[in-house]
Amino acid sequence: MKKLAMAVLAISALTCSFNAFAQIQGPVAGPPLAGPAGPGPRPPLGAHGSNTHGLLAVNTLQGKFVKLQGNDDFVIDGFYILSSADSVLVKFPSHMGTQVSAIAKQNGQVTVSGVYENAGPGPKEMRLVSMTASGKTLTETPPASLPEPSQQSVVTGTGKVTSVQTDREGRINGLFVDNKTILRLPPHVATQLGNSAAKGTLISFSGSVREKQQGEVMLEDYKVVRCSTITVNGQQYLVR
């Protein structure tokens, strides 16, 4: 009897082990994983809207120079070219403004090499690599020397709001006041002001004046003040 009982226990243990082993499943077959050298499509190098690091495809355009373009501070940092009925905004570092404006003539022919910076529908924008106009060629280069830090001019003043300035996302980032002055404000501050700084509102301000850097050209002669304080309706505010 004792031997029979031991045999039954051995058979039971063997059966349980077999069932447990049968329930263990191997990995499900599927497509191979894509690693550094694995399969899978990759975006072409330099495709529109690709990362700004690594290899970027340079495209060349020929067309007619249309006009210069300035940034929010009215410093020239681009120009429009009309190529095959397409208008393209060519952007360049602002320190090249003097060089570009010297050779680019309205309605003159210009050849531009650069990298597209936007993808999808909408205005085309290209970052300048080199350009040829009026028989001269310019290549994008860093400033000859870094601008030396200078003491910023601190100004105070009072004026009436004539209009507002908006950034590319449509957010208010500045107030135009009389005497060709722009009060530069962060968008969240302009939102807080709301209708308090509507057209015709008398506003007092203090802040630092943006200094023109070497090589820059102003599209229009505005004084840009980065506000430290503003006073509206008798209430002074610290701008942060």
Score class of each variant (00 low, 15 high):
M96D: 10
V115D: 01
K64W: 03
L61P: 03
P121R: 15
S130A: 10
N51G: 14
Q109F: 07
T60M: 03
P41V: 06
L128K: 06
S113V: 00
L68N: 12
T52K: 11
G108T: 10
D72S: 12
T52L: 09
A102K: 11
L55V: 14
E125A: 10
S84Q: 15
A102V: 08
P43G: 05
D86L: 00
T111I: 10
I103R: 07
K124Q: 15
I76D: 05
G114R: 09
G78A: 07
V90C: 04
S113Q: 14
N51M: 03
F92G: 06
K67G: 09
S83R: 04
G114K: 08
P93C: 09
G97S: 13
P41C: 03
S50Q: 07
A57L: 14
H53K: 13
N51P: 03
A47S: 07
T137K: 15
P93I: 07
D77I: 04
Q69R: 10
A85K: 13
G63Q: 09
L128A: 07
L56V: 02
M126N: 04
G70W: 01
T60P: 01
L45A: 11
L68W: 04
N118S: 13
M131Y: 12
L56G: 02
P123R: 09
N118R: 15
T98V: 15
G46T: 04
D77P: 08
S50P: 08
I76V: 15
M131Q: 06
G49T: 07
I81D: 00
G70Y: 08
R42L: 14
T60D: 05
S87I: 04
D72P: 03
L82Y: 01
L56K: 06
S94F: 10
V129C: 06
S134W: 00
S94A: 15
G70L: 02
K124S: 09
L56E: 02
L55C: 10
G120C: 08
R127N: 07
N118P: 05
M131S: 08
S113L: 03
K64S: 15
T111Q: 13
M126E: 05
M96K: 08
L68Q: 12
L128V: 06
V75M: 06
